[in-house]
Design a protein around this nucleic acid. Structure first.
Lengths: 232, 232
DNA sequence: TGACATTAGTGACGAATTGTTACTAATTCG
DNA sequence: CGAATTAGTAACAATTCGTCACTAATGTCA
């Protein structure tokens, strides 16, 4: 027993401003690209992540969908929270708290909404410090979760070639993969099934199209992996 | 080009109430246990997660540390965000938005603060729906990240036996592991180093104590794993 | 004291998985 | 037609993994 007041001690509940900041990612020739929107004149930076406050009664993911539609013109294929940010780094709307959400979408051909543009992740313009941190966290999270969630498939159209898929994995993991090993592992995973369509990309042999169709897996549980500790 | 107003359209920035809700986890004989605090009389539930609003200027993790200290009497060994919750599920303090944070701590012998108690995760009392969701998410996140972050080591004292460590992994993964395989993988990972101390637990051969001391790893990157997709 | 139970730790082998090479297949381009 | 290009696979070597069987060091108890 300690000499302390009963718990928890509730502070006066402060009211804070909340923003949902969305990192819309899509594959762009050989890199991932994020969607940025032009800011109103007078701000410190010319570009920012699409963001907004959630509407009354609107969930965070719903808000993220709405915000994505407002910049991309279409709903994203997958959303994932990447963290809450409440430090002192400046937010373009001076929100006290940001919830960072990453939205994935296949390569889009359709025109963007006016004022929105794709930027390769390796050549982003200046962003507010809060947005910069959210982008960094988003890319880390995406890379960390590639093999826990069907992220890669959401960056592709519903029908894709295995070379397309391997390309996405290489993009996300940042290293080349061996074709035969990749296909063998994919085969064993029961994650895709072939369609009866083929795509001819110009030169070379046409490739069969596959679709994402995860099936129940045999419970082939294996030992522990002490991997990835390096990147933490 | 579309017929839309310039972007992003900012809603009127609403003010919301924010809570940090902490799931303090610690190993308890054969299960994980969460720390709950007795609520003020009159609430719908008798117990809740320790929670509070962040103080002005206080970061989320700082708040989580303070909240943990208020219930446990000591700082946690590791903190990890598990998500933001802004749906309509009821929060004990009616916060609009909760940031869920999981705090890990080794088995503590010291007395808890008055009004706080450990509950095994498999036998929790009734909690507010929001808190229930945060606990569920926390356990999922912890299980998912065991091999990405040194979570398991933060549930042990600085010096531990390999059997202790294996026990924690079995707790977190929910399945038995083979001794020889576990040790071989651990050896290859360069995550621990032996101390020159030994612990005699009563009967049986004394065990050597190890400490967590991760070393640089050879960049032995392997192929992609299409694992875990089942649990999402 | 000596058998036995109990926990720690390791060697080794066969099975399974993975990395790699080298091939075959189907197309376009000249 | 043949060369270039991309898709897809068979097969082998190297490595990793699951398992079994053992040795080691302690306490217990007749």
């Amino acid at each position: 027993m300690r000499e302390r007041p009963p718990h928890p001690v509730k502070s006066v509940v402060r009211r804070t401003t909340l923003a949902v900041d969305v990192v819309v990612l899509s594959p762009q020739s050989d890199t991932l690209a994020a969607l940025l929107v032009r800011t109103a004149p007078g701000g410190r930076e010319r570009w920012s992540l699409p963001w907004d406050a959630p509407l009354p009664g609107e969930g965070l993911e719903d808000a993220a969908t709405r915000i994505t539609e407002g910049a991309l013109g279409a709903a994203p294929a997958l959303l994932e929270q990447v963290g809450a940010f409440a430090d002192t780094r400046r937010h373009p709307g001076d929100a006290d708290v940001s919830v960072g959400i990453v939205a994935l979408t296949p390569k889009v051909e359709a025109a963007l909404v006016a004022g929105a543009e794709w930027f390769s992740l390796v050549a982003l313009p200046a962003l507010s410090p809060r947005h910069r941190a959210i982008v960094d966290r988003a890319t880390t999270v995406v890379r960390q979760r590639v093999d826990q969630s069907p992220l890669a498939f959401r960056l592709l159209a519903p029908a894709f070639t295995l070379s397309d898929l391997q390309g996405i994995y290489e993009l996300l993991l940042g290293r080349p993969l061996h074709k035969a090993s990749f296909r063998r592992a994919l085969q064993a995973s029961y994650l895709v099934e072939p369609t009866d369509e083929w795509r001819s990309e110009g030169r070379g042999r046409p490739a069969q199209l596959f679709r994402y169709a995860p099936r129940k897996r045999r419970g082939a549980r294996r030992g522990v992996r002490f991997d990835l500790f390096t990147e933490g």
